[in-house]
Design a protein around this nucleic acid. Structure first.
Lengths: 143, 143
DNA sequence: CACTATTTGATTGCGTACAACTCAATTGGG
DNA sequence: CCCAATTGAGTTGTACGCAATCAAATAGTG
């Protein structure tokens, strides 16, 4: 026995499965906002950085590179949720800012966190404990 | 205050980030085997189901549909890791079986779980506790 | 037995992820 | 001041993940 190559034993498979399950639960809620989950993550960052944020710093927040963000932001610009402004001081930098439609969308998203919390079926204490464990794990892994 | 739309508060963002981090840690190990992480998952199932498994049952194990598995399996067939055999009793069913090369690859993968466990920096007890918590969460969510 | 509903797998199209690369703008060392 | 190195964003190519759709085969029903 002692076969370590089993799905049931693997932490990573649980994380992989849970991430997919979560995205599927978000999908119907986000569909009302015409957002995908990664686009929703971008919006959450932008709702905090009202003055705008560079593509690089946005990638720093979400741990995504320009290869992912550039086409994603292009789609969001086409939806008129964001606008791009190239800096004059340093023309390499593109500042991402919300449009009024993007700002307004926050109202429609306010209810989502509570709904997602509900489906987890966890108590607030268990959720916080899990968050702390995962933060520690991220810390350990990310060096 | 009390803005719930913050990345730092979101369990799902942790799962999303951790899943990506884990895949990046697997990548160099799996590159030696010329496998991606989802392909590695398929191999783990096949190493258990030595007599072969249908595409549907494989999808049941991994929670993936044929839209993902069909092209993925086609690539693995091209690498000569697996072969497809359409059943004679029920011609709708395609049985996925390992080739000898696929069977042999298990030896080269034996060291991976221990290496991945090492990078988590978790004790065996903490790992098991986390696995149990995640299993409960999956149970709650999957209905 | 004929007809319909279901099952199984494949295909298409879209949206991520990410490695590898290009390119322009900026910076820093001599 | 000049040139090499760095930085920031974008492009290309490959591989998922999944919704929607389709075709073939089987099972079920009257």
């Amino acid at each position: 026995m002692s076969n370590n190559l089993q799905l049931e034993k693997q932490l990573c498979f649980r994380l992989y499965s849970l991430n997919k399950l979560m995205c599927r639960l978000y999908a119907p809620l986000l569909k009302e906002l015409a957002l995908t989950y990664p686009q929703y993550l971008v919006m959450m960052v932008l709702w905090q950085y009202r003055q705008g944020i560079s593509v690089k710093d946005l990638g720093g927040q979400l741990d995504l590179d320009s290869g992912t963000l550039s086409p994603l932001l292009k789609r969001m610009e086409k939806q008129a949720l964001i606008k791009r402004e190239r800096q004059t001081k340093d023309e390499r930098i593109v500042l991402i800012k919300l449009t009024q439609a993007g700002i307004d969308l926050q109202q429609s998203a306010e209810h989502i966190p509570a709904k997602m919390f509900a489906v987890t079926g966890l108590s607030a204490e268990k959720l916080q404990a899990l968050n702390l464990t995962l933060d520690q794990l991220i810390e350990n892994i990310a060096n």
